[in-house]
C-alpha cells in the first residue's frame, strides 16, 4: 500500500501545478476565517445598523457553531483538490504513462489503488488542516472558552472528510471516462448546476428523488448553517441517511472506475 502511494507521490511532488494548487488551497483555507473577522470588524467600525447589536458578537466563528460553519464554507474549495486529482489522472492518459505503468508490472487495480491512496491523503491532509484552523480560530474568537464544549459539533469534521473524498473519487471517475483534463474540469464544474437544474424540474411528488442525486447527497452531509442567524430552523447535525447514501455512491464510483479500466484497451 505504501509502495503504491510512494509511486504516485513521486509523480506528483515534482509536478509544479500540484504545488501551486495546494498552496492556493491552503492560503484560502487560512485566509477565510481571518477575512470574516476583518469583515465583521469593518462592519462594526462603519457602524452598520444592527439595532444596537455588535456584529463582533455574531457567533459565526465561535464554538460550537464554528465546526459546521467552516466545514460548510470549505467544501466550496474542494474544487482545487479535485483539479489536482483530475490533472494527475488525465496526465497519465495524455502521457500514456498509465499504459507504461501496467507494462512495467502494475495491475489495473494497483493503478486505481495508488490514485485512491493519493486522494485519501489529500482529503485527510485537508481535513487535518481544517480541523487545526477551526480549533485555533475558535480558541481565538470564542469570548469565553470555559463555558463551551470545544468538540461539540466535531462530527462535521469527519463529514467534511467524507464529502471531500467522495467528491474527488467522483472527479477520478469523470477523468477515467473523459480522459482530457480541461474537458473533465469543465464538466465537473457544470455538473452541480446541471444536477440542481434537473431537480428543479422534478414534479413535487417526486422531489425527494433529487436528494439522492450524487452531488445533492454529498452536499447533504453538511447543511447550510447560516440561516440560523436570521432565526430559521437548520439541520445542525450530520444525518446518518446522508452518510449512508454517500457511502453507497462511493462504492458505486469505485466499482465504475474499476469496470471502465478493466474493460478498456490502454
Amino acid at each position: 500500500m505504501l509502495r503504491l502511494l510512494r509511486i504516485d507521490l513521486k509523480k506528483l511532488t515534482n509536478y509544479r501545478a500540484f504545488w501551486v494548487l495546494n498552496i492556493m488551497y491552503g492560503l484560502l483555507i487560512f485566509s477565510i476565517p481571518v477575512s470574516v473577522m476583518e469583515f465583521l470588524k469593518w462592519l462594526k467600525v462603519k457602524g452598520a445598523e444592527f439595532e444596537g447589536f455588535d456584529p463582533m458578537r455574531i457567533p459565526v466563528l465561535h464554538f460550537p457553531d464554528i465546526w459546521q460553519n467552516i466545514t460548510y464554507v470549505y467544501t466550496f474549495l474542494k474544487i482545487f483538490l479535485a483539479i489536482v486529482v483530475i490533472i494527475s489522472i488525465s496526465n497519465e492518459y495524455s502521457y500514456k504513462t498509465i499504459r507504461q505503468n501496467i507494462i512495467d508490472g502494475m495491475s489495473r487495480v494497483d493503478f486505481i489503488k495508488s490514485k485512491l491512496f493519493t486522494i485519501l491523503l489529500l482529503s485527510l491532509g485537508s481535513t487535518l488542516f481544517v480541523f487545526i484552523t477551526g480549533l485555533l480560530t475558535g480558541i481565538i474568537y470564542t469570548p469565553d472558552l470555559s463555558f463551551t464544549d470545544i468538540f461539540m459539533g466535531i462530527e462535521f469534521v469527519p463529514a467534511y472528510f467524507l464529502d471531500l473524498f467522495t467528491y474527488m473519487v467522483f472527479a477520478f471517475l469523470l477523468t477515467v471516462l473523459l480522459k482530457r483534463s480541461a474537458l473533465t474540469i469543465f464538466i465537473l464544474l457544470l455538473y452541480t448546476p446541471i444536477e440542481y437544474a434537473i431537480s428543479a424540474y422534478i414534479p413535487e411528488s417526486f422531489a425527494f428523488i433529487a436528494e439522492y442525486f450524487p452531488l445533492h447527497a454529498i452536499n447533504n452531509l453538511i447543511e447550510f448553517p447560516f440561516a440560523k442567524y436570521w432565526f430559521q430552523e437548520i439541520q445542525d447535525f450530520v444525518s446518518m441517511s446522508a452518510v449512508g447514501v454517500v457511502l453507497l455512491y462511493l462504492v458505486l464510483f469505485i466499482y465504475a472506475i474499476h469496470y471502465k479500466l478493466k474493460t478498456s484497451d490502454l
Binding site: R3, K10, N14, R16, Y95, R99, D104
Partner: peptide, 20 residues
C-alpha cells in the same frame, strides 16, 4: 513513454519501484 517533467533518474525510480 515517460513523465516529461521528470528527470531520467526520477523516471527510472518510478519504474524501479513498480518492478521491485
Amino acid at each position: 513513454i515517460f513523465y516529461p517533467y521528470l528527470s531520467a533518474v526520477k523516471n527510472l525510480e518510478i519504474v524501479a519501484e513498480i518492478k521491485g
